[in-house]
Structure formats: structure tokens, C-alpha cells
């Protein structure tokens, strides 16, 4: 088998083109999440970014990860975000005060970090090429991941359930009011608690 028959980045297959397009969509939606002035729009752009990322996983034949991405991130996390926006009475229209004073510094740090990561990864894997047919040999199937999860990775998996329990308790501590009237004076709040 010659090297040419295995393909290379110079002659992309259909799957690879789809992968790159989905990547562009993810990146563009992610930029819109942090630049839009409407909170609800930001949450909806997040749906696009997460969905396109799920598509990327699917093209790489990581089926289970792709569907988990759709169910958990697109399904649960974004819905939770939207509920959060709704329940905190955040403004629906454009907000002008979303950008902090540190915006230029944050942009510089983000762009620099992304640049370094992309450079290093391209440098490290420039010569590596795995045809997608080879990648789709079942490595991303639910069966493979399940077997790995419940054998090799069973301890971190169980530790994660402990983490979720701790988060649940914490959420109850921070939100449940056991004594006293309902929040009638919430708007008056913010008094200095140093007395």
C-alpha cells in the first residue's frame, strides 16, 4: 500500500470537508455568543455552537460523545441557561453593560492562548494522517466507550457521581429558604452585611 492511496490533507474527502465546515460554524457561533448584546441570543448561539460541535464528533465517528453532547449540552445545559435568564428577570432586549473594562485584555489572552494551542497542535500532528474510514472502526461506539468506562475508568466515573451529589447539596444550601418570609424585600437587599 503506497502512501498516496492512504490519502492526505491535499485531497480531502467529503467527510473532511464537512468536518471543516462544521468547525467554522462552531467557531463563528462561539464568537457570536460572546459578542452579542442580547443574553437570550447568546444562549441560542450557544445551541448552534454545541450542535455543530456534536456534528464534528459525529463526523469523527464518535457517536456516543456526539449524542451525549446533544442531550446534555444542547438539551440540558442551554435549557438551564434559558431558565436562569428567565427567572432572574434579565433584560430581554439588548444590554449595553455586558462588556467589562477588561475586554481588551481578555481578547488578547484568549487570542494568544488559542494561537499557541493551534500552533503547537498543528506542529505536533502535521505529519499524522488517519483516514476517516480507519477511524470509524467502532472506536467511538457506545459499546467500546461503555466497556472502557465500566472497566478502566470506573473509579473516576464513580467519583463524578460524588461530585454531582456534592453539587446538588450545594445548590440546595445556596437556594433553599427554610425560615422567614418569602423574599419580599429582595429588591431592598444588598445592604452591607458588616453590622
Amino acid at each position: 500500500m503506497t502512501v498516496l492511496a492512504e490519502g492526505s490533507y491535499a485531497s480531502p474527502t467529503g467527510q473532511e470537508i464537512v468536518f471543516v465546515l462544521l468547525g467554522v460554524v462552531t467557531l463563528a457561533a462561539a464568537v457570536l455568543v460572546v459578542t452579542t448584546r442580547r443574553l437570550v441570543h447568546a444562549a441560542l448561539w450557544l445551541v448552534v455552537a454545541f450542535g455543530a460541535l456534536a456534528g464534528c464528533y459525529l463526523v469523527m465517528s464518535a457517536e456516543l460523545v456526539a449524542w451525549v453532547q446533544v442531550l446534555i449540552y444542547v438539551g440540558a445545559v442551554v435549557v438551564l441557561l434559558l431558565f436562569g435568564i428567565m427567572l432572574t428577570r434579565a433584560p430581554i432586549g439588548p444590554s449595553t453593560d455586558l462588556d467589562g473594562a477588561n475586554r481588551p485584555a481578555a481578547v488578547v489572552v484568549a487570542v494568544a492562548l488559542a494561537g499557541v494551542l493551534v500552533t503547537v497542535i498543528v506542529d505536533g500532528f502535521r505529519t499524522a494522517y488517519v483516514p476517516s474510514a480507519r477511524a470509524s472502526s467502532g472506536a467511538g461506539s457506545a459499546e467500546t466507550i461503555g466497556a472502557a468506562l465500566f472497566r478502566d475508568w470506573v473509579l473516576p466515573f464513580e467519583a463524578l457521581s460524588v461530585l454531582l451529589l456534592a453539587a446538588l447539596i450545594g445548590a440546595i444550601v445556596l437556594s433553599r429558604r427554610e425560615i422567614g418570609p418569602a423574599e419580599t424585600d429582595a429588591r431592598r437587599g444588598g445592604g452591607e452585611g458588616e453590622g
Binding site: 425560615i179 444588598g190 445592604g191 452591607e192
Partner: peptide, 10 residues
């Protein structure tokens, strides 16, 4: 009560 607003009646 962690849920109570600082300085509130609750």
C-alpha cells in the same frame, strides 16, 4: 440561611 439576601428580614 445562605439563600437570604444579606441584610434582609429573612
Amino acid at each position: 440561611q445562605a439563600a437570604a439576601t444579606p441584610g434582609s428580614a429573612a
